[in-house]
Design a protein around this nucleic acid. Sequence first.
DNA 1: CGGAACGTTGAATCGGGTCAAGCTTGGTGG
DNA 2: CCACCAAGCTTGACCCGATTCAACGTTCCG
Lengths: 247, 247
Amino acid sequence: MDYKDSCIIRHFNHYCSLSEADKRLLNDLEQSPTEIKAGAQLWEEGDRATEFCTLRTGWAYSYRHLENGNRQILEVYLPGDIIGLREFAFCQRLAGVQMIEDGVVCHFPHARMLELFRQSTTLTSVLFAISSRQQALLTERLVNLARRSARQKMAHFLLEMYVRLRQTEPDGGAAFRLPLSQEQLADILGLSPVHVSRTFSALGEDDLVHRDRHQLLIPDMEALAHEGEFDQCYLTDSLRPLLDEVG
Amino acid sequence: MDYKDSCIIRHFNHYCSLSEADKRLLNDLEQSPTEIKAGAQLWEEGDRATEFCTLRTGWAYSYRHLENGNRQILEVYLPGDIIGLREFAFCQRLAGVQMIEDGVVCHFPHARMLELFRQSTTLTSVLFAISSRQQALLTERLVNLARRSARQKMAHFLLEMYVRLRQTEPDGGAAFRLPLSQEQLADILGLSPVHVSRTFSALGEDDLVHRDRHQLLIPDMEALAHEGEFDQCYLTDSLRPLLDEVG
DNA sequence: CGGAACGTTGAATCGGGTCAAGCTTGGTGG
DNA sequence: CCACCAAGCTTGACCCGATTCAACGTTCCG
């Protein structure tokens, strides 16, 4: 069988080479694909948590609402990502998830994960690695939110998205599409929408980021990385050495 | 055999009841206990990551340094916690880890984790659940850092620590010991040490938190929880239902 | 008793938030 | 094809929470 169209298999393969049996197991997670519209919710905070989703196409994000009406976006999901991993240990959803663009998702129940644990040590390890990587993303974002200026936050986030996109679509140069409104960016970065606008202007004037609508261009990666104290090691390191060594 | 002295078994038991064989496997992780002094580092950012630690006694924290000299503390570890889970997928340490008090830790190599995956689906699930819970802690802290005022940050963090402590030491009422300096609190909450001091004073005047040195008293949990928008569901939910159902 | 680390207090400053008005853009229907 | 409207983006003025710097207390330890 040919699985080259499966985002999730491509994603797992990035960590470790998979046997045919493993690929079949993974492919089973991508049954019952469901189309879903931009702006639609996969679920809301407080919903019962009984399943995961794989994101096949489109972008999504998870978020939390606050009492003062603010919203904080926790993570941005790209095609191939697994959504809801965090809630494995929980009965309730801790965060809502919403689509940024039209897309396709596949649901599978928590219990299926236990079967994976039983059936493949390799897939278990990769799942663990994916979960670790998500944690790494979170801690990096945490540092970003806690300690950096608006300029640095923007610079850092844009580079993070750029690198993540290029990991699945290596071609395309220094320009990319970021389908996020400034309000969504504000909710990601812990800023006000107004200040996102100002910050974009400031970065533009310094030739660090050029933007036209949702199209972005980073003329000088080095310079922007320096501005945002961005070090991509938290995105690029991988499990391969350990798994290869043990077999 | 009697494992009641083992923090890590107590910790795992919290998620799911363990067989004797599972307990034996876990107990093996706690060989070669090492004493370690307050202020000593388990490792630094950039060190090669080849092993985990279980924390048997004492408190520890993970942190990141920033270029401007600031430091951000990512998580606070209590006895029974596993340190370094996040770096399973990485060759390098993404964060340093330092002891807050004198303590005892036990090292075990990454490869040992793969053995656990092979030998026990139950332990694998619990490990996954622990990793999920750590992620939940991180996302909650992220919201805290991104969107809340200094008062709210303090209130929220103090309650989080209180609830986590009471999960392993249920007795002790509304008072507890928090062995953190104001500088460390500042590094946790993304504030300046000066403002931590001011915030403590303000909370004290409103009878929300009374503090004497490292001893804390929360006279009215409800009031403080309201102040910090604290909802402990992200700390208390558990894996048990799923595992019991599947067996 | 002296010193170092830690905590407190005040004054000045600044980054980012809020509010409000005006400007673009893209989609819709006449 | 154009007119209109609603979102979304930009810009300016003002404000406030938190930072910084500096001086002064306090506690603990050798």
